[in-house]
Design a protein around this nucleic acid. Structure first.
Lengths: 220, 220
DNA sequence: CGCATATTCCAACGAATATTAGAATAATGC
DNA sequence: GCATTATTCTAATATTCGTTGGAATATGCG
C-alpha cells in the first residue's frame, strides 16, 4: 500500500523538528534566541559552549527552519523563524515540567520559590502594574528588553541593579522577571533587592511564556 | 560557576521530551494514541511496524512520560499521559507545516484540498452543525469516536460507509473528519461519497487539533 | 499444569549524532 | 593587500540510536 510511504514521509518531516529539539544545547540556544536576535559569539558564550559547537548546532536548527541567519557586518545574527518556534519551546518545557518528576525535583533544588502564574494572576499583576501598585522590572540585558517586554515593565538589568537600586521605590512591591522558568537572573535580582530591604519577588514567566499565554508584549 | 551545571541539568530533562519526539515512528504512534487508548498490537499494525519495534518505541515514550501503559487482561494498553501531550504533537506538526517547505510540498502531493480551519470557520461549522445544515461525520473507527469526538458529529467509520451510506441525507452538505491533517481517511470518505452523488467535503482537523484550538469535545 | 497469545528483554549490527581540532571563507579596518 | 575577527567547513572520534532476531515473561484458557 502506498499510503504507508506517504505517511512515513509526513512523519519524517515532522521528525526533523523533533530531532532539532532533541539536544539540550540546542534547546538552550532556542531559549536564548527566544529573547531576541543574537550572534553566534554571544550564543556560544551564554550557553557555555565552544563557538564551533554552537555553529554546528545552529546549523541543525537552521536546517530544521527553526532559526534564520542574517549577516550583519562582520557578525552573523541568528533569530527564531517565528513566534510559533518560541511557543514550541514553551510547550516542550511545560510538558516536561508537567510529567518529568526528575525535572520537578531539579527545579525544587535550584529555585526556592517557583511562582508559576495562571491566567488570573497574570491579569491581576497587569492591573496592579498599570495602577503603579507594583513595579515590574525586567532584569535581562537591555537589548533583550528592547526586543520586547512585559507591558508596564521597566528595564533593570541584573548587573546594573547595584548601581541603580536607588531608582526603585522602597515602599512598593517589586516583581522581577527574566528569561523564563529556567533563568536564574530574577532570583538573583530578588535576593539582591531583599538584602537592601526591598519587598521583591520573582515570577516564572519570561516574554515567551507571556506571549504563549496569549498576552501582548510591548516592543519599545 | 555552578549555574552552568544547573542549566545543563534542566535542558537535559527537557531534551528527554525532545528525544522522544525525534523519531518518525514515535510521532506516528503519538498521533495514533491521540485518538485514544490502544494496544501494542493495534499500534504496530496501524503504524506498519513490527510489534517488537513498536514495543521498543513505546518504551522510549514511556521513559519520557509521554505515555502510560496499563495491563488490560492479556493485552497492554497505552495511552497519552495527558492532554498536553496531544497538544505537543499538534504544535510540532503545525511548526513543521509552517516552516518546512518540503512538508508543504509533500502534503500538496498527497491531499488535493488542504482545508485548514481558522477560529471563525470552526465556529460557523459548529453553528451549522447544530442547526442541522451540515452533517458532520467522524470516519474513524468507532472506538476512537467513542473516546471523544467533535460536537454534533456522528460516527460513520470509513469501512462501513458503503453499507451505511443510505443513512446520510442526500440533500445536505456532509463534512468529514478523521485523525487530523496527516490522516487520509476523510479524503477517502469524501471521494466515496462524491461518487455516490453526495455533496461532501473534508476538514483537516481531528480531535487533537480541535481541542488544541480550545474547543470542547463530546465524550459519548 | 501446559499451551497459546501478547509483550518485553537481550544481544548485535549498521547508521546517525555530538564533540573536538584544524583548515577555509568572508567581511572589516589599517 | 594584509592582518584581524567571526564564522563555517571538513575530518575524525566516541557514543547513541533504530532495527532485527531470538529468548524470556506474563496472562488467560482448557
Amino acid at each position: 500500500m502506498d499510503k504507508r510511504k506517504a505517511k512515513d514521509l509526513l512523519s519524517e518531516e515532522v521528525a526533523r523538528i523533533g530531532k532539532a529539539v532533541s539536544s539540550p544545547k540546542r534547546l538552550e540556544l532556542l531559549e536564548l534566541l527566544a529573547q531576541g536576535e543574537k550572534t553566534v559569539d554571544a550564543l556560544a558564550a551564554e550557553a557555555g559552549i565552544d563557538i564551533k559547537l554552537a555553529s554546528a548546532h545552529l546549523k541543525v536548527l537552521k536546517a530544521a527552519r527553526l532559526v534564520v541567519a542574517e549577516r550583519d557586518g562582520r557578525f552573523i545574527a541568528y533569530r527564531l523563524s517565528g513566534e510559533d518556534v518560541s511557543a514550541l519551546w514553551v510547550k516542550l518545557r511545560t510538558v516536561a515540567e508537567e510529567h518529568l518528576v526528575e525535572l520537578k525535583v531539579a527545579m525544587d533544588g535550584i529555585f526556592s520559590a517557583p511562582e508559576k502564574l495562571d491566567a488570573e494572576t497574570r491579569r491581576s499583576l497587569m492591573s496592579k502594574a498599570r495602577r503603579g501598585d507594583v513595579v515590574v522590572i525586567d532584569v535581562r540585558p537591555a537589548a533583550e528588553y528592547d526586543n520586547g517586554h512585559l507591558p508596564f515593565a521597566r528595564s533593570m538589568p541584573l548587573d546594573e541593579i547595584r548601581q541603580r537600586i536607588k531608582e526603585l521605590p522602597a515602599d512598593k512591591d517589586i516583581v522581577a522577571y527574566c528569561r523564563g522558568p529556567f533563568c536564574m537572573m530574577s532570583a538573583e535580582a530578588v535576593a539582591l533587592l531583599q538584602e537592601h530591604g526591598y519587598r521583591a519577588q520573582k515570577i516564572a514567566d519570561g516574554t515567551a511564556e507571556w506571549q504563549a499565554a496569549g498576552l501582548p508584549l510591548t516592543t519599545a
